[in-house]
Nucleic acid binder design. Structure first.
Lengths: 181, 181
DNA sequence: CCGAAGTTTCAGTATTTTCTGAAATTTGAT
DNA sequence: ATCAAATTTCAGAAAATACTGAAACTTCGG
């Protein structure tokens, strides 16, 4: 590893825990991401000085996040891994997986909690707060879904507009006052 | 705790690790969030059966996330805690803190990596990929900043529009072809 | 300034998570 | 079918993280 790559890999290792993956997984991903060619598990284990089995686990985890793709090289039985390099594609994948793992379980817990009949004033207040949380999470979840379908270019456009989108919304509201929202 | 509140608290405890906080912190937050009145540390420790010091740590952590607010009750020296109940406010706070903790350190690492002169073809490729990642993170970071400033109503409007915003952007492009992006 | 009520720190313990190496399994060429 | 190359599983070791209780500290009324 060159010093440049090493610094990148080390950073991903350190940040891993904040991002909900562990150090090994972070480093493996970073290494694959900057590699000019697909890597096999042995090369990764060698480069990062991790056991072969640890790397195997890490690669499985990365596959479950859909952050790495499996490839086969002709005349070689080993599995090679590469990472999508398009940043927008990565963002989309991450957003989708996070929604699935971090929002959906909570949404379904909230849904069933809201079906219960409150047994006290305390419960009534609790449900009220849960309702607020539920509605927001649902809104965001659907929004993610929608955004998922936009092409990279439109997304970029939307982001670059930033706060100016507010003006646009006000304008639209005036143009089509009956359309609501 | 009523069964309803218990289920909510337990869920937050379990999800905690996925959200980058620990079980205790998740449960403390959940409890404060649904409580109809501010709670003091002793009540929390009692209700959740955690040691007083563990609760103290947890509350500090929640304060660092700006998810709970400190209050004082007249004639009582103890510190009471309550959580903002407006879902949008919570979302904003979370987005801002995550940006600060999960994106900014990476952004600055990438910035310095991109200043290096690549020492090989391998480094050149690595830098290219890092550039893509850097640009996207920066874009998102700035977008978060912008969105931060929108009021809840506009945000909700934007989200509810979902994918239809694309149409709007196309339309705008046609209306003001010279305005760029 | 004293003491009681409250909060925080911290060193040690418990728990959880990560990592390894050996064994088991799968795969595919012959 | 056989066998060697590769991958996966898994039980236990190692490391990291969370939790506790006791002691230290802070705050404020008197």
């Amino acid at each position: 590893m060159t010093p440049l790559v090493h610094a990148f890999v080390a950073h991903f290792g350190e940040m891993g825990s904040r991002w909900g993956i562990n150090r090994t997984v972070g480093q493996i991903y970073a290494l694959i991401f900057v590699s000019p060619r697909p890597l096999c598990a042995d090369e990764i284990a060698e480069t990062l000085s991790y056991s072969r089995s640890n790397v195997s686990m890490g690669l499985k985890e990365l596959q479950s996040w859909r952050l790495v793709k499996l490839r086969h090289m002709p005349g070689d039985r080993r599995e090679y891994f590469e990472a999508p390099t398009d940043a927008w594609e990565i963002f989309r994948t991450l957003a989708e997986e996070r929604r699935r793992r971090e929002m959906e379980p909570t949404l379904s817990m909230l849904r069933s909690a809201l079906l219960e009949t409150p047994s006290s004033e305390e419960d009534r207040v609790a449900q009220e707060r849960m309702k607020g949380m539920h509605d927001l999470i649902e809104l965001m979840s659907n929004w993610f879904d929608d955004v998922q379908r936009l092409d990279a270019q439109t997304l970029a456009k939307l982001m670059r507009m930033g706060a100016r989108v507010q003006k646009l919304l006000e304008l639209t509201g005036q143009l089509k006052p009956g359309t609501k929202e």
